[in-house]
């Protein structure tokens, strides 16, 4: 505890000096998220392992026949990526909620929407991007033609950013509930459907050699819409959860 040495007079910060520097706060939040996840590798790896495991169940459950697998591969890879993302969402705000960090974020002079979107961005970097990188590996196992791997990765990387943003809303709404996990999937999965349609559509188009760009453009449009609407929805939901 501090020794009672010469205590300076307490100063009141006036309007002009109170200008908070947003970039400092955002960069620090991103660094904080990444270093937290570096120490909780399981949190990052589990969705990836789930993805690989779940995909490998399908040939066992349906048939190892290559033609059939090729036909269903785009859908499978996308649906399972959806589930893997969903699995990681519950932890997005949970520990910060429990230890009181969210409360501090809310009380800081920075906008809560910007801080929480930074957390979502970290989530995407550590869940969506690894899923996209890993998908071609599973594509091989599902006899997906080689020429569609690029589109698979791009569509997953682009689409999973929307998934993280939309899922962030659900995570923020359920973070105050003791068992929000199942409810979270009920809230979020219907909202994921457009991303699923255009994402798997892109891969399917790539497999049969159709134009891929319209699908990817739609994924981009969805991401733009999510970037506009999700931040305020996440911030509003977090406020509700914290003060519940």
């Amino acid at each position: 505890m501090p020794s009672s040495d010469t205590t300076p007079q307490v100063a009141i910060v006036s309007e002009s000096k109170a200008k908070p520097r947003l970039t400092v706060a955002l960069r620090a939040t991103l660094v904080r998220e990444l270093s937290r996840m570096r120490r909780r590798r399981g949190e990052v790896l589990n969705p990836l392992v789930f993805y690989a495991l779940a995909i490998s169940l399908f040939p066992l459950g349906i048939s190892p026949e290559a033609d059939l697998l090729t036909a269903i591969a785009p859908g499978l890879l996308w649906v399972m990526a959806l589930f893997a993302t969903l699995l990681s969402l519950d932890g997005l705000f949970r520990s910060d909620f429990d230890d009181g960090s969210l409360e501090q974020m809310m009380l800081s002079p920075q906008p809560l929407a910007a801080l929480s979107v930074t957390k979502v961005a970290a989530h995407w970097l550590l869940t969506g991007v690894p899923l996209a990188v890993m998908a071609p590996l599973l594509g091989v196992m599902l006899a997906l033609p080689l020429h569609s791997y690029g589109v698979l990765m791009v569509s997953l990387a682009l689409g999973s950013a929307s998934l993280s943003l939309i899922g962030g809303i659900g995570a923020a709404l359920t973070v105050g509930l003791p068992r929000g996990g199942v409810l979270l999937s009920l809230l979020v999965l219907p909202l994921y459907i457009p991303v699923l349609i255009f994402g798997s559509g892109a891969v399917q188009a790539a497999v049969v050699g159709d134009a891929v760009l319209p699908h990817l453009a739609m994924l981009g449009a969805l991401l733009a819409a999510a970037l506009i609407f999700a931040p305020w929805a996440i911030a509003a939901s977090l406020r509700i959860s914290i003060n519940g």
């Binding site: 809303i169 809230l187 909202l191 459907i193 457009p194 349609i197 609407f229 929805a233 509003a236």
Partner: peptide, 20 residues
């Protein structure tokens, strides 16, 4: 909040399902 999020999504869902 969820109802408002949903109402923004309904046209998007409708459009994407039609496309699909």
């Amino acid at each position: 909040v969820l109802a408002m999020v949903g109402v923004i999504n309904i046209p998007i869902i409708k459009y994407s399902v039609d496309w699909w």
